[in-house]
Every structure is written in structure tokens, then in C-alpha cells.
Amino acid sequence: MANSTRKTTNAATRSAKETASSAKQAAKSAGESTLENGRSAGRATAETVSTAQQQARKTLGKISSRATIGWNLIKHRKAVAVGAAAGVIGLLGGAFAAGRATERSGRGPVTRYTKGRI
């Protein structure tokens, strides 16, 4: 009887050792998986932060360039006003010339030569 008890005890011990080994392997695997998931999450977060920083730099660059343009317009407002006035005068002169050309088209060459006296 002692022999059969010893066999049963040895079988139970082996089974317990195998179960413990399996549990240890599963825990190790789960730990490695969790660690890898944490690393990938950290990489994803770092990439997101990097992208956000790049977008912020681009946006700030655009804002500063627009502010620079606005400041230059204010600083050179007299030159801008003169340029705008010259543009308006040129536009009005062109419209006047076009109107004169359409008004003259009703006269013949002799009348135009004598400036309408004949």
C-alpha cells in the first residue's frame, strides 16, 4: 500500500509541478505582452506629441508671417496709400480713354482731322 501511495503522491507532485510551470510560463508571457503593449502605447504617444508639435510650429509660422505682413502695411501706409491712389487714377484714366474712343467712332476722318469744324 505504501507503494501505491508513493506513486499517487509522485504523480500529484509531478502534476502540480507541471501546472506551476505552466502558470509561471503564462504569467511570464502575459507580463511580456503587457510590457510590449506599454512600449507601443508609449511610441504612439510620442509620435502623436511630435506631430502636434510640428503642426503647432507650422501654424505659428503662418501667424507670424501674416503679422509681419500686417505690420509692414502699417509701417509703410503712406506708400500703400500712394500706390492705391495711383491705381485708382490709372483705372479712371483708362475708363475715360475708353469712353472717348467710343464717342469718337461716330465721326469720319475729315471731321476728326478738322476737330469737328466741318
Rank of each mutant, 00 (worst) to 15 (best):
G108K: 03
A56W: 08
A27V: 05
E103A: 09
T45V: 06
R57N: 09
R104I: 04
A84I: 15
G108Q: 02
E36P: 00
A44H: 12
R43Y: 02
S22T: 07
T19Q: 14
K115R: 13
K115E: 04
G90C: 01
A52G: 09
S105G: 07
L73C: 06
Q55V: 08
T111A: 02
G70F: 08
A101M: 04
L73A: 11
A85K: 15
V88A: 04
A26Q: 11
R107I: 02
G94T: 13
A23I: 07
S21W: 01
G38C: 03
H76E: 14
T111R: 03
T45C: 05
Q55G: 02
G106C: 04
A52T: 09
R100C: 05
A67M: 09
R77S: 11
A27C: 05
A97E: 03
L35Y: 06
R57K: 09
R107N: 10
T111V: 08
I63N: 02
G90S: 09
Y113M: 06
S33M: 06
R107P: 00
S21I: 01
A44Y: 07
G116L: 10
K78D: 09
K24M: 06
R104C: 00
A30L: 12
R112W: 10
G99M: 04
A101S: 12
R107V: 06
R43I: 12
T114K: 12
K58P: 01
A23G: 07
I74W: 10
S64M: 08
T59P: 00
S64R: 15
A81T: 11
N72A: 14
H76G: 09
I89L: 11
E103Y: 15
A52R: 15
R100K: 12
G38R: 12
S65L: 14
G61Y: 04
S33C: 07
V88N: 01
S65H: 15
K28L: 01
A101V: 12
V88H: 01
S105P: 06
Y113I: 03
A46Q: 15
T19W: 03
K28M: 02
W71T: 11
S65I: 07
G70V: 10
